[in-house]
Write a protein that binds this DNA or RNA. Sequence first.
DNA 1: TATTTTTGATTGATCGATCAATCAACAAAA
DNA 2: TTTTGTTGATTGATCGATCAATCAAAAATA
Lengths: 208, 208
Amino acid sequence: MPRTGMEPIRRKAIIEAAISTIGERGNLDVTVGQIARSAGVSAALAHHYFGGKDQIFLATMRHLLRVYSHNVGGALAEAKGPRGRISAVIRVSFGTEQFAPSTIAAWLAFYVRAQSDDQARRLLGIYARRLNSNLVDALGQLCARDDAKRIAEGIAALIDGLYIRQALHSRAIHDGPADPASAIALVERYVNSELGAVARPGKKGGKR
Amino acid sequence: MPRTGMEPIRRKAIIEAAISTIGERGNLDVTVGQIARSAGVSAALAHHYFGGKDQIFLATMRHLLRVYSHNVGGALAEAKGPRGRISAVIRVSFGTEQFAPSTIAAWLAFYVRAQSDDQARRLLGIYARRLNSNLVDALGQLCARDDAKRIAEGIAALIDGLYIRQALHSRAIHDGPADPASAIALVERYVNSELGAVARPGKKGGKR
DNA sequence: TATTTTTGATTGATCGATCAATCAACAAAA
DNA sequence: TTTTGTTGATTGATCGATCAATCAAAAATA
C-alpha cells in the first residue's frame, strides 16, 4: 500500500505516539519499539525517518513547543491591553491542549531531559525566554521594571509548580482529570495581588 | 581491610554517592557501577547491601526526605507563632542543605520517578502531605480554612516551581550557584500579600 | 495500453553494547 | 574456623542501531 508522501504522515504519527507513550509511562524510559508500535509502524521505520531515538525526542519537544507557541500567539492577538495579555498567557498555559495528562507528563520528562541534554536544554531555554519576555513586556506596562521581572518569575514558577503537582496528582488519584480552572484562578489571583501591591510606574519606576 | 560494622558506613557512603551521581547527571540514568565507584566500592557490594538498584533509589529518597523532615522539625520548634512556622518551612525548603545543586537535581529526578514507581510516589506523597498539613495548620490560624488550603497550594507550587527552575538555571549558567535568598523573598512576599488580602477568620471564616 | 524501470516505504533479522543481578571465591577479623 | 566484608567474573536480558530484502506505487518506455 505504499503511496508516496507517507513521510509527513509517519513523522506526525510517531511524534504523537511518542507523546502518548511518554505520557503513559511518565518518563523517557520508553523504547523506540514501543513508540513505533503505538504509531503502527516498525521500529526500523522510526529510525529511518528520524535518525535515532534522540532525534525522536527532540522532534517531539519541538512539536510540543510549537503547539504551545502557536496557542500563545493566537491568544495574545485577541488579548486587550497588557493585563489581558498576561491572562492570555496564563489561560493558554493551562488550556486543554497543554494540560492534557500525557502532555504534562511529557513536558516534565523533557524538563529532566534538559538536565543532561544540551539540545533539549536549548529548546526549553527558548520557551522559557519567550514566556519570560511576554510576561515582562506586559507587566512592564503596569508596574516598574524590577517589579515586572520579579512578578514574571513568580508567575513562571507558579505555572511550573502547578504543572509538576498536577502530574503527580493525576497519577495518585487514578488518572484524575486536570483542574485547569482552579490553577488559573490561583495564578490570576497572584498577579492581581502583586500588581495591587506595587506602585504605578511613573516615567521612572520608584523604589518599591 | 574488612573491619566489622562496615554496613552502616557503606550504606551511607553509597546513598551519598547516589545523590551526587544523580545530581551530576541530572537524572536517574546512572548505573549501579557508577554509584558504587563513586562510593569507593564495587557494584556487587552495592547489590549486597541494598538488594538492587530500585532499593538504592528508594533508600536515597528516604534519606533526602528524612533530612528535610529533620530540618523542618528543628525549624518549627524554634518558630514563633503560625506566621513564623510558615516562614520556617519556607526557609528550610530553600536552605543550603536542600538547595544544593545535586540535591535539587536528585529531587527533581525522583519526582519523575514517582510517575512510574508506586513506592516512590508513596514516599513523595508522605512528604507532600506533611508539607501541606504544616502549611494549612499554620495558615488556618491566620485565615479561613478555604483560604488556608488555597494559599498552601500556592506556596507548595511556588516552592516546586522555583526548584525546577533552579535546576535548569544552575546548569544553563555553568553550574551557577543557587540563589536561595531571592527565592525565599518571593515566596514570603506571596504569603504576605495573600494573607493581607483575606479577612481575619472569625469563629466561622466568611466567604472570601 | 501494456511492460519495464525506478524509487519510496517498510520490515524482520541481527549485531554490539550496556547493565542489573548473581555467584563463587578470597581476605581479614573474631 | 567461622563470620563478615568484598570483589571479579559471568550471565541473561534489553535495546538502539543497522542492513539486506520486500513490496507496491509511480514514472518511463515501448
